[in-house]
């Protein structure tokens, strides 16, 4: 069973600006949690705190506690490098490594981490490329540069790459913002498939997308968690007026 995550009084500061304000968020296991909210509400800042992508970035400070299962991810025993093999991330713009082949993009990290023996690399490659519905499209050109793929394929390659290190949780930061509707649809279908084995958190500014793919939704406004809960309930019967105003399109 994939791990859960939760945050307690999580704050993220960019310089003096508090971008995320005391957020307590529950992320359920093997389910999709969508984080929605207007631009600049702190969705991405919150997401990036979950795998410590803010570490070492100048002027960014993270305060509060974040748990992966029952381990606090800032604890001394937790190495951010190790954490990121358990909490993977897919970004807004597809960012395959252009100097590497399709195959190398996937096998690079598992090989570096000593997770896979030479002979088993091809199995792993096929497995994650099948999971991301890329296998049939690229199996005859695995040695081609990743940059030769369409941007939708590149984004699925980035998902495959993230899955190859075997994460418990996959964070997705507006993964379809740079894609056309067809490519978006394929990614959404994938998310639906993947959530059986893995916990997914997706940041999106597209409410239809949140409604389509997620089991739970968290609505963030001005850095505060206004409301979170079952997606169906939140969209049909929001508890907060602010949530209703946002999902009915009165602001944002």
């Amino acid at each position: 069973m994939a791990e859960t995550m939760r945050t307690r009084a999580l704050r993220v500061f960019f310089g003096d600006t508090e971008a995320v304000k005391a957020v307590d968020l529950e992320i359920h296991s093997a389910a999709v949690t969508a984080i929605i909210g207007p631009s600049g509400c702190g969705k991405s800042a919150l997401l990036r705190a979950l795998n410590r992508m803010h570490d070492g970035v100048r002027g960014v400070r993270v305060v509060g506690r974040i748990y992966l299962g029952d381990r606090e991810i800032h604890d001394g025993g937790m190495d951010p490098v190790l954490l990121r093999t358990q909490v993977g991330m897919v970004f807004q713009r597809p960012n395959p490594f252009p100097a590497m082949s399709i195959r190398q993009n996937v096998t690079f990290a598992p090989r570096r981490h000593g997770m896979v023996r030479k002979g088993e690399e091809s199995n792993l490659l096929e497995q994650v490329l099948r999971k991301t519905a890329l296998w049939d499209e690229v199996k005859d050109r695995l040695h081609h540069p990743a940059a030769s793929l369409s941007s939708g394929q590149q984004q699925r390659l980035c998902m495959a790459r993230a899955l190859a290190v075997g994460p418990q949780v996959l964070l997705m930061d507006e993964p379809t913002a740079a894609l056309d509707p067809t490519a978006t649809q394929r990614i959404e279908a994938l998310i639906y498939e993947l959530k059986r084995d893995i916990t997914i958190v997706i940041v999106t500014h597209n409410m239809q997308q949140a409604a389509r793919v997620s089991d739970r939704t968290a609505f963030l406004d001005d850095g505060r968690l206004v409301e979170s809960g079952e997606t169906e309930r939140l969209f049909t019967n929001p508890a907060e007026e602010r949530t209703e105003a946002y999902i009915t399109g009165r602001f944002g």
């Binding site: 795998n51 992508m53 490098v81 190790l82 954490l83 990121r84 093999t85 993977g88 991330m89 970004f91 713009r93 960012n95 395959p96 490594f97 690079f108 990290a109 981490h113 980035c158 790459r161 993230a162 290190v165």
Partner: peptide, 10 residues
């Protein structure tokens, strides 16, 4: 984004 891509893979 290339740095981040690599760091996010651990």
């Amino acid at each position: 984004s290339q740095w981040e891509g690599a760091l996010a893979l651990g």
